[in-house]
Amino acid sequence: MLNQLARDVKASMSIYDAGDDKVYGLLAEFAHPGELLHAAEAVREAGFRHFDTHSPFPIHGMDKAMGLGNSIVGWITLGGGITGLSLATLMQWWMGAVDYPINISGKPFFAVEPSIPIMFELTVLLASLATAAGMFALNGLPRPYNPLFYSKNFARVTDDAFFLHIAASDTKFDRDATAQMLEKLGASNVETIHDHGVEDQD
């Protein structure tokens, strides 16, 4: 069960296991964002779950087409912000009023008003760092190794190409049938991605 959970979490990061035959998945190219969006919708409706689209920029409406909910990054931000706020309050109170109380023009050792700037700054600082770290963690990045990089064609994904990748780990995956379905959806250039540690020669 733990293995299944790990697999699901990794799938949410777009990381999939290759099968025994070293097949990682099928990579299909689509002509433009419109086609990719429709293909993603169709693939989801066909019951696939381990799939992802790859594009040079985020495509409006793709989350819905792929059946993905709202990102949970916001909760991590909130956690960071609350940590920062509490830390700043505790720090200023303890350092100024408990450990090293020093009388400056008869001002109180601790008061909320002069503590606000630092409370605010540390809230923003920790919330921002948590957001960045949380985003990378939820995405499973950094990920230096990715079988998709074996595809020469895939290098254009950060330029002007639009891809749909169906992972072999999906229960519905069948190399021939799935490839056929992708072609029917208008894909050009459907290729099988192998997770065997060697770059494709073609």
Binding site: S12, P58, S71, V73, P144
Partner: peptide, 26 residues
């Protein structure tokens, strides 16, 4: 960091970007 433009990544990325903008504004 091994960015592949995956939509599952863009989803978190765009949210994080929005949140950072919201934090940087004040």
């Amino acid at each position: 960091m091994g960015w592949t433009g995956a939509n599952r990544h863009w989803r978190n990325y765009e949210k994080a970007y929005l949140l950072l903008a919201a934090l940087a504004t004040p």
